[in-house]
């Protein structure tokens, strides 16, 4: 177990398998958001409930939404990879 957890190549393959499996297996579902499903349950247990506040701003289209999600991921991975690259270079220089 510990050996597998130390091998990043195996770990990456496992992550890829976990993400691909639901799409590859014959699973019924539209792969919508779990929050939309939760909304369905709320309507079922409290049929009269009306959201009393709506988002101040919403992305005008699915394209803009995906732009902003991509931006979020890019900013995060950008900083993380900058840090790892920086430290990698520094640890190499010490050797």
């Amino acid at each position: 177990m510990s050996g597998i957890l130390k091998n990043n190549k195996i770990l990456m393959a496992l992550v890829a398998a976990l993400v691909i499996a639901p799409l590859a297996l014959p699973i019924a579902g539209e792969f919508g958001g779990s929050d939309d499903q939760a909304e369905g349950v709320i309507q079922q247990v409290a049929p009269g409930y009306e959201p009393w506040f709506s988002s101040i701003w919403e992305p005008p289209s699915g394209e803009i939404e995906s732009l902003l999600f991509a931006l979020q991921a890019a900013l995060g991975s950008g900083l993380l990879c900058y840090y790892i690259g920086l430290r990698h270079g520094m640890s190499k220089r010490k050797d």
């Binding site: 993400v19 639901p22 019924a28 792969f31 779990s34 995060g76 993380l80």
Partner: peptide, 27 residues
Amino acid sequence: KLLLASCGAFAFVLSALKLPSVTGSCS
């Protein structure tokens, strides 16, 4: 400091990744 910021960045990336699940929905 930079490692701490990187931990925040990690949360930023992972929260942006909506992944498919075996239930046929995404989170």
